[in-house]
């Protein structure tokens, strides 16, 4: 009985830690997503405009 409670508590704790890791992972990722896009990226697409179409 005591073991069951300990087991359940350990599971809850592990779940909590996993959730926390998940939150942090998303924060880490979103941090970059929210950065302003450097000009070079937009330049690439601007240049891609030029109709040198075929290769």
């Amino acid at each position: 009985m005591e073991d069951n409670r300990k087991g359940a508590a350990a599971l809850d704790e592990a779940r909590l830690r996993q959730q926390a890791i998940g939150v942090k992972l998303r924060q880490m990722f979103d941090e970059v997503v929210n950065e302003p896009v450097p000009d070079e990226f937009l330049d690439i697409l601007r240049k891609a405009d030029k109709p040198s179409g075929e290769r």
Binding site: M28, V32, V33, V37, E40, F41, L45
Partner: peptide
């Protein structure tokens, strides 16, 4: 922005990540 973020997690280095993302684009 999403490609930049994914590239950053793959390379770990922001400059290499942007190069990678631009190549991919």
């Amino acid at each position: 922005p999403h490609l930049r973020a994914f590239a950053r997690t793959l390379t770990g280095d922001p400059t290499a990540a942007d190069d990678l993302a631009q190549d991919a684009m």
